[in-house]
Design a protein around this nucleic acid. Structure first.
Lengths: 183, 183
DNA sequence: ATATTCCGTTTAATATAATTGTCAATCGCG
DNA sequence: CGCGATTGACAATTATATTAAACGGAATAT
């Protein structure tokens, strides 16, 4: 998200110091320092106090912030965001960029040995495809089963029931794409 | 602001329970309950997690939220928001609505005995006017001084230096208006 | 040179948000 | 009815944001 950099940019554009803004907003300069360095995520109430003091509306702030995010092109490995809740079942799904603002969703997936997306076949609109980068994985799509190794790939209609299982002894990495994004 | 009611409305419109949304967002149902009841102000990070799970962007959320705020017409006494930082010098300025979205700013002001806006005359664009509701107050505008009592009023160009002092023994209440809003 | 002021950062203490575990209420279903 | 499942709410604990105070650097004045 990077609330910090955007807040700093806006504050400077308005010619305010951290202390000046803090006084207007009823917060402290230390708080603003921490927020701007992205060392804390401010409460909505705190952020609103800061923006009111500038002044700029919340809607405006997030509009330009998310525009910036959409314009982002390059992502460091650590910037991919984990979207698999609590790494359920040894599965890691690391998303490139903010899929909510794009038509394309790319994931860097890791399946630990024994990992399994489970038999609950959720089916969503669109297509998805991927290439195995490391290790091997058993993929089931609409009843058809195949063991894919590094370099192999898959491509299917997302509405078909599908399942991924790592039945090998090493972790398996996959780079996949999905359109439109699903959550 | 009322983040809670808006979140609840959106969540229900998408047919999600607190627990379902919590699971998707990686938070807990208890947290959502507290947020929806406006008993806490979520961190930006938490709110983003929730909105991503719905999904809806931050910009969208605050756009419709602040639209609602603008559409608000009636305000209970307790809904007026204090804009005088820490009641400096016994002065309370309670603003009606969110002035950031309107051309008109109305304040319910209270000056304790001895209260003083101070001699630092900040001058901003626009006009301001008010009526004394209770008590009396000494108003100085561009050098001219007058003691106003309940029922009296004032109206002047905001660019003229001005000062309010309660030199009486009782609190003084004023209802004032300003356009455009100043902070 | 040396205070002086203003800036942003950092640290330890405090206030607040988030989690955990539980509760009563509600809704179907047998 | 009576049972299990699901809902939103709440109290106590844990995690995190915020404060208050101090620090060091950079610019300006004495």
């Amino acid at each position: 998200m990077n609330v910090g950099d955007k807040l700093r940019a806006i504050r400077k554009k308005h010619g305010l110091s951290q202390r000046e803004l803090a006084a207007k907003a009823g917060l402290t300069n230390g708080t603003i320092s921490l927020i701007e360095k992205n060392r804390t995520s401010p409460s909505v109430a705190s952020l609103k106090s800061l923006l009111d003091a500038i002044p700029i509306s919340m809607a405006e702030f997030f509009t330009i912030l998310e525009e910036d995010d959409s314009a982002k092109v390059f992502y460091r490995a650590q910037e991919l965001t984990e979207i698999s809740p609590s790494h359920q079942g040894g599965v890691s799904l690391r998303q490139l960029g903010n899929a909510a603002h794009h038509a394309l969703q790319v994931l860097h997936e890791t399946y630990e040995p024994g990992a399994d997306t489970g038999p609950e076949f959720l089916s969503h609109e669109g297509e998805e495809a991927g290439v195995v980068v490391r290790g091997s994985i058993e993929v089931t799509v609409d009843g058809a089963v195949s063991l894919l190794n590094a370099g192999d790939g898959y491509l299917f209609d997302s509405r078909l029931p599908h399942r991924f299982r790592n039945i090998g002894t090493d972790p398996c990495e996959i780079v996949s794409a999905c359109t439109p994004p699903s959550f």
